[in-house]
């Protein structure tokens, strides 16, 4: 996937600016077989500390032709999806790497919103009635969506029975727990797009009474192009194997000092922070990972804010600096992109 820094920044800025100015942005045509990555939301971590209006929760759209696979659905993701000109009808699947707020805050609403966007024609034989949205994630994903369906039962019933939405919600939204193995395994195929997953944090893999959630990494491939998306990771070798040969690695990274400071401020103990830290990837470690996988481009996204209260310097320069000053990895480094903040909307 050829996406150098200049192209990346140009396309991001142009996309956002056009969307804001006109509320209208035709997606650029893609070459056949090519994947395009749109970083919709780039803020990771449970809290919104310091989020301001700079970034929304983690969400990455991977486009192939007219089809889109969404990875992560943190707060504001659907807003950004629409601003990027991607209507929910183009979604072929929604994936989450873990069941934390920064991945799931908008997930159930995405299922509802994508469902509500179909035709209210009441015709079970219509093409609209054949719409489906697979929703994949670690253990608990299915329970998350089923609980949401129970929570919204009255609304869903009104939408389906009274307002004639087709198909039924539980037919449309297809949540599934991915039983990913340590090595990469295909979990979804839709047309020409394939999704593979590997488990990068094992369930309850960290002891000391601290529950760290299971986490998956994904590899999305179409034609000769592949993108690997790495969130929390306690097994870097597995991540390298998942990403091997991908054009681009999108990696969630943590400014360790900042994140530790933020965790302490929230009352986390030393042992708890240490447990979490085993799943964090620093910018330098991300560079090593991408180099070992042979990826041409590394994108630092899913930036964990970890800022002091009231202190809101731009994130991207800080992560770029961390990468430059700490990277001591072997061999040549991949090209680096640090996710730019989405320009704030017109006030």
């Amino acid at each position: 996937m050829p996406m150098d820094r200049r192209t990346f920044l140009r396309s991001t800025a142009a996309t956002a600016a056009a969307g804001i100015a006109a509320g209208h942005l035709p997606p650029p045509a893609l070459a056949a077989g090519r994947l395009r990555v749109v970083l919709l939301g780039t803020l990771a971590g449970d809290g919104l500390g310091g989020a301001g209006n700079e970034r929304t929760g983690t969400a990455i759209a991977v486009e192939h032709g007219g089809d889109v696979v969404l990875v992560g659905c943190g707060f504001g993701s659907i807003r950004r999806l629409l601003e990027a000109g991607i209507e929910t009808s183009r979604l072929r699947a929604a994936l989450v790497t873990r069941l934390t707020f920064d991945q799931t805050a908008d997930l159930a609403s995405l299922a509802m919103g994508a469902w509500s966007n179909g035709s209210n024609n009441g015709d079970p034989a219509s093409p609209a009635a054949r719409r489906r949205l697979p929703i994949l994630g670690p253990a608990g994903t299915q329970a998350h969506l089923l609980a949401y369906a129970r929570q919204e039962a009255l609304t869903i019933d009104d939408q389906y029975r009274v307002l004639k939405q087709v198909p039924a919600f539980d037919v449309f939204a297809r949540p599934r727990d991915v039983t990913a193995s340590a090595v990469r395994r295909r979990v979804l195929r839709d047309g020409t797009v394939e999704v593979a997953a590997a488990r990068l944090v094992d369930p309850r893999s960290v002891s000391s009474g601290v529950v760290v959630p299971e986490a998956l990494g994904y590899r999305i491939a179409a034609g000769s192009s592949a993108v690997a998306i790495i969130g929390p990771c306690a097994h870097r070798d597995r991540a390298v194997a998942l990403a091997r040969g991908a054009d681009t690695v999108v990696c969630e990274v943590v400014d360790v000092e900042g994140a530790r400071r933020a965790a302490r401020a929230l009352g986390s103990s030393r042992a708890q922070i240490a447990a979490m830290q085993r799943t964090w990837t620093t910018p330098a470690e991300a560079a090593d990972l991408a180099a070992r996988a042979g990826a041409g481009t590394l994108v630092l996204a899913g930036l964990v804010a970890g800022r002091r209260a009231g202190h809101r310097p731009p994130l991207a320069p800080r992560y770029r600096r961390l990468h430059r000053t700490r990277h001591r990895g072997p061999g040549s480094s991949p090209r680096l992109n640090v996710a730019a903040a989405w320009p704030p909307p017109v006030r």
Binding site: G140, A143, H144, Y148, V211, S268, Q272
Partner: peptide, 15 residues
């Protein structure tokens, strides 16, 4: 129930 996994985890690590 909707956010069981995330909130259980957060309770565990941040009291």
């Amino acid at each position: 129930d909707v956010h069981r996994v995330a909130t259980d985890r957060a309770v565990a690590h941040a009291t």
